[in-house]
Design a protein around this nucleic acid. Structure first.
Length: 272
DNA sequence: ACTGGATCCTGACTGC
DNA sequence: TGCAGTCAGGATCCAG
């Protein structure tokens, strides 16, 4: 269930337990994730301190002693929990990090679209991270930047938003939601949107992601405490998954279409 | 250089 | 109730 807000929520939830903690053991039950998990992870991580829990795009970067980083991606169905006491693993619990404190960091991913890598050196130079676009909540994601990225492009704006080389972290839900907020039709060619409307889109993306992170924050404690996950953030989605339901702004019906094999939701009355 | 399509995998849900 | 078909919050790789 990882959109950028949820990856960030996960990072904030596990960081207090991980930063400054020493890993005592690694249990890898399923090395076949999106890519094979390198055996060096289980060999080299135990005994090291975790220095920092960071995020880039939807990747979690756990920096360890010795210039190494555990790089985790949650894929479509991955989740990360901190257990305060040992608990028998369930289905799809692929990876455990045992900490000297007695806590366990547990990675679960039914569909196995997630990944775990063990990286030497600067993880930001990793092939998967090197060519990524700016963080949507960072200083580089500006109207000028988006306008330059859209210039001359015929691709639908929704698909451009989901291209990690343009901007990271905007997944299928938030692409629909931010376009609804900005009043832009998801199929409109990126290069045929005025600068003013792209500026509104930048603001909409920021607003939606920040609101979702705030909602995720309310469940942080449960997450860190390792108790049942109570539904993560409950956003007031205006468009996503609301096909056939009335638009909250104009009362018209929300429509669903498929773009690039992904469902898109929009209001034909409000978005042009 | 861009763009669309196939692909990895399991589980939940729908309709017959 | 069983079973086939569809769809799912990602994103890389490859053909055209």
């Amino acid at each position: 269930m990882p959109e950028l807000p949820e990856v960030e929520t996960t990072r904030r939830g596990v960081a207090p337990w991980l930063e400054g903690a020493r890993v005592s053991g690694v249990v890898l039950r399923q090395p076949q994730l999106r890519w094979p998990v390198p055996p060096a992870l289980a060999r080299e991580l135990p005994g090291r301190l975790v220095l920092a829990a960071e995020r880039r795009a939807k990747y979690l970067l756990f920096r360890a002693e010795g210039d190494r980083t555990l790089m985790l991606h949650l894929g479509m169905s991955g989740s990360l929990r901190v257990l305060r006491a040992p608990r028998p693993p369930g289905a799809h619990d692929h990876l455990d990090l045992a900490l000297e404190s007695g806590c366990t960091l547990r990675f679960n991913d039914p569909r196995r679209f997630g990944s775990a890598d063990w990286v030497a050196g600067d993880p930001l130079q990793h092939p998967l991270l090197r060519s990524l676009g700016p963080e949507p909540l960072g200083p580089d994601f500006t109207p000028d930047y988006l306008a330059a990225a859209c210039r001359g492009r015929k691709v639908a704006i929704k698909q451009l938003l989901m291209n990690g080389r343009v901007v990271v972290g905007v997944g299928n839900i938030y692409a629909s939601e931010s376009l609804f907020r900005a009043g832009i039709h998801p199929a409109r060619a990126a290069g045929r949107i005025s600068r003013a409307r792209l500026a509104a889109l930048v603001a909409a993306i920021r607003d939606v992601l920040e609101a979702a992170i705030r909602q995720g924050g309310t469940t942080l404690r449960d997450f860190a405490w390792g108790e049942g996950q109570p539904g993560y953030f409950r956003m007031e989605l205006a468009a996503y998954d609301r096909a056939g339901q009335p638009c909250r702004r104009c009362g018209g019906l929300i429509r669903a279409v498929v773009q690039g094999q992904r469902s898109t939701y929009y209001c034909p009355g409000c978005q042009h």
